[in-house]
Amino acid sequence: MGIEEKLPAGVALTTVEQVVGLARKSSMWPATFGLACCAIEMMAVGGPHYDLARFGMEKFGATPRQADLMVVAGRVSQKMAPVLRQIYDQMPEPKWVIAMGVCASSGGMFNNYAIVQGVDHIVPVDIYLPGCPPRPEMFLDAVLKLHDKVQNTKLGAHREQEITETEERLLRRSLPLVTKD
């Protein structure tokens, strides 16, 4: 019927969005942002037992300028917050952020003067990964979820439409199990 039927063997059709997504997700270069306990688990994921290299992500770079994923692993203190933002700003677009562990996600058990209550106060976060610290398997799961997100990210006008739609959906969703009054 369409062009698909006329294709020789070994050729597949897809969208530009999917190709770009595939390229972006298949070789992510994380910028380590190891802060506390979670950083050790993150390093364990890089080790032979869990082997992050299976997902093309073993190049844990130190330079933010050659990275597209920031894994905020650990509690972010008020003193560290400006440093974190500076590193994030130095990363080129497109970039993603995983908030690893409850401290990075929400402040966790440290609800006090010293700790930023969630790294989303400073940088936009794509994946919140709970756990204290999350198991390496959980980290791998977060990575896979992020890959899925990256793969299916739309481009250009579609992206703008996607953002508008998500925003509306979030505004309209009926959430509370608990209400204020």
Partner: peptide
């Protein structure tokens, strides 16, 4: 130092 000060003692 102090970039990871968590306030554990106070908490």
């Amino acid at each position: 130092i102090g970039y990871l000060h968590t306030g554990i003692e106070k908490n």
